[in-house]
């Protein structure tokens, strides 16, 4: 068991895969909490049957809302580190261990699991997505000097004191919970590193992608990049006692 770590799993209509994910984490000795983001299916019941505590949001808040709720739960229960992980089985427990090892060896407040770092197998993403990701990581690099090849990765490890800040203030809008959160954390003085990770194909459910997905992704990315920083956290220096 790794007592100070909690794996937070936001889940929206993931009853097909969430049970296996919870069981896999239990086998690996990792505590987890499933945040059921207003699902219409049996996500909460499946996760509870698999032995995980479940935070059931009565209405759908989006990934950012589900994550903040999970962060709050982690802080209330005294966990020092959180790994956020998808409910569709894309992030195997071995890679969660890898993120935690990187966090320990670097002492970073935010470790972003990246699919594009050297040594990690390239992941098949569409061309539009790749161009946008390059643009977003350019923004992060120019504004903060931090290199993030995969700024939209939803596979990350967050450590105190950043965890406490995110439990208080975390955006819900598109790209806010990934790109913008990393940008704001870097600008507020928190240390960010990225770690190469391997991601598996989805184990169940359907990816939220369609013919118009690329166009919508670009449009929303531009809005997110222009809108800039819409939330604030206390800088690192102020969180020290």
């Amino acid at each position: 068991m790794t007592p100070d770590v909690l794996v937070v799993i936001p889940a929206y209509n993931e009853s097909a895969s969430v049970g296996a994910v919870v069981a896999g984490l239990a086998d690996a000795g990792l505590a987890c909490v499933v945040v059921d983001d207003g699902s219409a299916d049996a996500t909460a019941a499946t996760a509870r049957a698999a032995g995980a505590p479940v935070l059931r949001l009565p209405v759908n808040l989006g990934v950012g809302g589900a994550l903040r709720c999970g962060f709050r739960y982690a802080v209330e229960h005294g966990y020092r580190r959180v790994v956020q992980c998808d409910a569709d089985g894309q992030h195997p427990p071995s890679e969660i261990r890898h993120l935690l090892e990187v966090q320990e060896s670097t002492g970073a407040h935010l470790v972003v699991g990246s699919r594009f770092v050297d040594g990690a197998p390239a992941y098949d993403v569409g061309r539009a997505r790749r161009i946008i990701m390059r643009a977003l990581s350019g923004i992060v690099r120019r504004r903060t000097g931090t290199v993030l090849h995969d700024p939209t990765s939803g596979f990350r490890c967050i450590a105190q004191p950043l965890l406490g800040e995110f439990a208080t203030s975390y955006p819900v809008h598109y790209l806010g919970d990934t790109f913008e959160a990393a940008l704001v954390a870097a600008r507020s003085g928190y240390r960010i590193v990225e770690a190469p990770v391997q991601m598996l194909p989805r184990q169940g459910g359907a990816a939220s992608a369609g013919p118009l997905a690329a166009v919508r992704f670009i449009a929303r990315s531009v809005v997110a990049a222009l809108a800039g920083l819409t939330f604030r956290i206390r800088p690192l220096a102020e969180t020290q006692p």
């Binding site: 996500t43 019941a45 009565p58 209405v59 759908n60 989006g62 809302g65 598109y174």
Partner: peptide, 24 residues
């Protein structure tokens, strides 16, 4: 509440029809 009353049958049934997904 679920922690305090482990045996109480908390309703796991989703709200009628679920809720509309937020922009994701």
């Amino acid at each position: 509440v679920a922690e305090i009353e482990p045996r109480s049958p908390t309703s796991d049934t989703p709200p009628a029809g679920g809720t509309e997904p937020h922009a994701r």
